[in-house]
């Protein structure tokens, strides 16, 4: 299982945990498992279509998953994922 670091903004939705374990062979599967285990996280990071919001970043071992294979990026037991909703806006 991969380790997922939960930022403070999502921690309440993850039962207060700073990190959680989630199973999956790639980023997409890990996020699916995470959102199934913690539906409140899914409400915050997924669109109404169930896609990951484009302003939510995911890092695998500090590397931007979008610069790899995005949700198809393979992950294993030793990998750590960080979910990071953007701080963004505009007038």
């Amino acid at each position: 299982m991969s380790t997922v670091k939960i930022p403070p903004v999502l921690r309440q939705a993850a039962g207060g945990e700073r990190t959680v374990e989630a199973k999956g062979a790639n980023v997409g599967e890990v996020l699916t498992a995470l959102c199934e285990a913690h539906p409140a996280i899914g409400k915050q990071i997924l669109t109404s279509d169930g896609e990951l919001h484009k302003f939510v970043n995911v890092y695998v071992n500090d590397e931007d998953a979008r610069l790899m294979q995005w949700t198809d990026t393979p992950v294993g037991d030793d990998d750590t994922l960080l979910i990071l909703p953007a701080m963004a806006g505009g007038q």
Partner: peptide, 25 residues
């Protein structure tokens, strides 16, 4: 707080500001 500037508009959240407000606390 998370701060940002509005250079041409009032100090009031735009629609984009609200749509992208992931942080409730």
């Amino acid at each position: 707080a998370i701060y940002h500037s509005h250079t041409r508009s009032a100090a009031y959240p735009s629609t984009t500001d609200v749509d992208l407000a992931f942080f409730a606390a």
